[in-house]
């Protein structure tokens, strides 16, 4: 999954956490990819493909981000 890009399908969290994730640009529909994983189960480094903006996000928080499964017809 590293290096592969996919669009965010849904954010499964609410309130402040959701706001926090969104305020850093991780919205439904944005295409992102995982650039790196920190050692010792540290955070993921996620890049917004369109803007190049990077955000580090803890793995347990990242689990709330559901990615779109690749459409079978492809693009």
């Amino acid at each position: 999954m590293e290096g592969e890009t996919a669009a965010i399908h849904a954010l499964h969290s609410d309130g402040a956490t959701r706001k926090r994730i969104q305020s850093l640009g991780l919205f439904e529909g944005r295409r992102i990819c995982v650039v790196a994983r920190a050692p010792f189960s540290g955070p993921l480094l996620v890049e917004d493909v369109a803007t190049g903006a990077r955000v580090m996000i803890a793995r347990d928080l990242a689990e709330n981000i559901e990615m779109e499964s690749r459409a079978p017809e492809g693009r």
């Binding site: 956490t17 850093l24 190049g52 990077r54 955000v55 580090m56 803890a58 793995r59 928080l61």
Partner: peptide, 10 residues
């Protein structure tokens, strides 16, 4: 405790 979420500037 909540995990980290933080911008990494260029």
């Amino acid at each position: 405790s909540l995990g980290v979420i933080m911008e990494v500037p260029p």
